[in-house]
Structures are given as structure tokens and as C-alpha cells.
């Protein structure tokens, strides 16, 4: 399609502060990586995967939220060129320019796990686990759906085995077994972000919280991501890289912050439901990683 001149400038409402800083000096050509109704993923000139979300999507790492209801009007497709320039990003051949000027900077802040007294984290994890099991999606980390075929059952079994391997390795504390445990889950399972990766995201988030006893998980996780990134999808890999730094979607951070207060009360339910609404099954699988991480946290504290 030709550029018809009257380019639409869409304001970016908010964005990951680190991404906005990254974009500030960035010049050159990138491309459209993938297109969904409400989210478009781009590759920057240096190959970083970033997301453009429609308004109301909630802040997330490497994500800009733009003032559109969805992207369908712009006829975007994977492979289109994207020009990164001062204060704006535009899609070649489409009348779309995103202006980052005035965007609210989102700075994800991970709450500390140092403060809560003993038992509180475990209680929070139990509550989370109950809600998750009552409302979470089946077919991934939470077990097979009733009447599932052999393929789904085999995947669920493999996820369960990978989970056990990884959690045992974290308990033992050796980097090499942790690497194997991560590899047992990376890229495994159904979904656009495979369920195993979602689990790893939840676990990595706990490990990245200030004061976490799981911090030893992060170096081998980063190594695996660097060395074996091709074992999963680009979207999943980007999500995991960020989670290992404690940077996850706002809904998930809000939930963790609520848990860290030690007394989530009635607000917990609503907060968990927001996380469960992420993707089709991603939210539930991520929560199961979070629950596992919080349980481990308590276990490892007890041993001190």
C-alpha cells in the first residue's frame, strides 16, 4: 500500500520507562514481528522484541500502550518495516506514527520479601494456590483437563516432571542441576507462551524479589536463556529475560505487592482474577510458578 500522506499520529499513553529510555536515542530500521488484534510486536533495530498494546491492556515490560482501541484499522502485518526516529516510531507504508512524547513512564517496582514475618508468605501462597486451583485453566501446569487425549496428558506429565526436577535442583542449590531443570521446562507445553515458560516466569519473579532466598536460581536461568534461547518462542524468551530482573506485567506485580503486605484480605481474589485473565492459560501457569516459588521461599527460610 502506498503512503497516502495523511499519517495518523497516535499518542503513546504510557510505556515501560526502561523501554522509553532505550527508544530515546534509538534510530534506524526495525520490523513488525507479529500482529494480534490488540497487541503488535516489533523488533527494534538491534533485534529487541517490544510490544505495542492497545489502551486498557495494562502496563508490562518492553511494552508501550497506545491510544487505540485495537490495531485492525492500520492493516499491519508481520515483516513490515518500522522506522525508529526521535520521539516517534512509524510503520513504513502504513499511515501510522506513534509519538512517545508525553507518555507516562511506568517503573515496575518489585516489593521486598524481607519484611513479612515467618509463616505469612506460606499463608499467602496457600491462599493463592486455592484460588488458582478453583479458577485456573487446565491443560498446562494445573493438570490435564478431564477427557484429555494422550498428547495433552503426555505434555502435562512432562511439565510435572520438569517442575519436580527444577524445584529439587533449587532446593539443593547447585547451578548445574538448576540449568537442567530449566531446560526441562523451557519451551514445553501448549500456548503461544508455552506453559513451562509461564511457570518459569512466576518462579523467576519470586527469585528476583529483594530479599529472596531463591536468588541463586537467577544466574543459571540467565545462562540457559542466553545459550538456549532458540528452544522457545521469541515472545516467551523476552518475557523470561525480563522476569529474571523482577520485571513482569503490572497485574502480576500488583498481586505480589498485595501478598507482601502480609494481609491481602478480600482484595486477593480480584487481584488473582486479573492475572488469570492474561492470555488464555498463561496467567494460571504463571501463578503456579509463583505459588511454587513462594512455597520454596518458606522452605528455604526454615532451613536457615
Amino acid at each position: 500500500m502506498e503512503d497516502h500522506g495523511d499519517t495518523v499520529t497516535v499518542p503513546v499513553l504510557s510505556g515501560d520507562a526502561r523501554l522509553l529510555d532505550l527508544l530515546e536515542p534509538l534510530r534506524g530500521k526495525g520490523s513488525v514481528h507479529s500482529v494480534f488484534a490488540r497487541v503488535v510486536n516489533l523488533l527494534t533495530p538491534d533485534g529487541t522484541l517490544i510490544a505495542l498494546a492497545a489502551r486498557g491492556s495494562g502496563d508490562a515490560p518492553r511494552t508501550l500502550t497506545a491510544d487505540v482501541s485495537d490495531w485492525s484499522a492500520y492493516h499491519l502485518s508481520a515483516g513490515l518495516g518500522v522506522t525508529f526516529a526521535t520521539g516517534n516510531v512509524s510503520v513504513d507504508g502504513r499511515r501510522l506514527r506513534l509519538a512517545t512524547v508525553g507518555a507516562r513512564a511506568w517503573r515496575p517496582a518489585a516489593p521486598s520479601l524481607a519484611a513479612p514475618p515467618p509463616g505469612v508468605v506460606a499463608a499467602a501462597a496457600d491462599a493463592l494456590d486455592r484460588i488458582c486451583r478453583a479458577h485456573g485453566p487446565l491443560g498446562g501446569m494445573l493438570g490435564a483437563a478431564p477427557g484429555a487425549g494422550p498428547m495433552e496428558r503426555a505434555v502435562v506429565d512432562a511439565l510435572h516432571a520438569g517442575r519436580t526436577t527444577l524445584l529439587d535442583a533449587v532446593r539443593d542449590g547447585g547451578a548445574a542441576p538448576v540449568r537442567l531443570g530449566v531446560l526441562a521446562l523451557l519451551g514445553l507445553g501448549p500456548g503461544l507462551t508455552p506453559a513451562g515458560d509461564d511457570f518459569l516466569t512466576g518462579l523467576a519473579l519470586v527469585a528476583a524479589l529483594p530479599g529472596s532466598r531463591l536468588a541463586a536460581l537467577r544466574p543459571p536461568l540467565r545462562e540457559v536463556l542466553a545459550a538456549h534461547g532458540r528452544r522457545t518462542t521469541a515472545l516467551s524468551l523476552a518475557t523470561l529475560h525480563e522476569a529474571a530482573e523482577g520485571r513482569v506485567r503490572s497485574e502480576l506485580l500488583a498481586l505480589v505487592a498485595l501478598l507482601a503486605t502480609g494481609d491481602p484480605g478480600a482484595a486477593l481474589h480480584a487481584s488473582v482474577r486479573k492475572v488469570l485473565a492474561i492470555g488464555h492459560s498463561s496467567g494460571g501457569d504463571t501463578l503456579s510458578g509463583l505459588v511454587a516459588g513462594l512455597h520454596l521461599e518458606e522452605e528455604l527460610r526454615g532451613s536457615l
Partner: peptide, 29 residues
């Protein structure tokens, strides 16, 4: 069964004897 063509997912299919040549060639994306 719908999933991305990752090594792990292909591994599960192989164990089930369902990994055709076409599936073996699939990549993560």
C-alpha cells in the same frame, strides 16, 4: 493438539511416536 514447534514439545510428540518428518522440521516460531 496445538502448540509451538519447540524442542520440548517435539520431544513429547516423539515419545508418543507422533513426530512426523514435517513436525521434526518445525522451529520454535
Amino acid at each position: 493438539f496445538t502448540a509451538m514447534g519447540t524442542e520440548m514439545n517435539k520431544g513429547v510428540l516423539e515419545n508418543l511416536g507422533l513426530l512426523t518428518e514435517e513436525l521434526r522440521a518445525a522451529e520454535s516460531g
